[in-house]
Amino acid sequence: MKYLIIMQIDPAVLEQLTADQQRQIQEGHGAFIAATKERGEFIAAQALADPSQSKVVRSSGDRPEVTDGPFVESKEFMGGFYLLDVEDEARAVELAQQIPDANIPGLALELRPVMFSDLGEG
């Protein structure tokens, strides 16, 4: 069963991290990727650029309109995601708890089951 683990980040929280914490996070993600790959649970991971880089396309009624900035006014944004294939929801939760962000107050992880996939192969 595929799960998308969305990393909810708060740029203000990330700014306050010490160099040591930043290194730990980086290493933690590296170790997490290696471990899930080794177990055959890893599908993909992406980290997104800062929300200030966002463009939003939405209908103004008769045609799509393009605006700068994130979709909603919020402190927390989707910073990236992991796509995993696991036995069940319990395993997805267990893995999410191993992601370094889970141990930093102000950051959070959101898990959603995937309904349809096409990885563009075959």
């Binding site: 080794e38 177990r39 649970e41 294939d85 192969e121």
Partner: peptide, 21 residues
């Protein structure tokens, strides 16, 4: 391995890793 990966829409590497394990 590619056929199995295609059925489940999981990367071939992931399936190969499961088989190896």
């Amino acid at each position: 391995t590619a056929q199995i990966a295609n059925v489940y829409q999981i990367p071939e590497r992931t399936i190969a890793q499961r088989i190896t394990r």
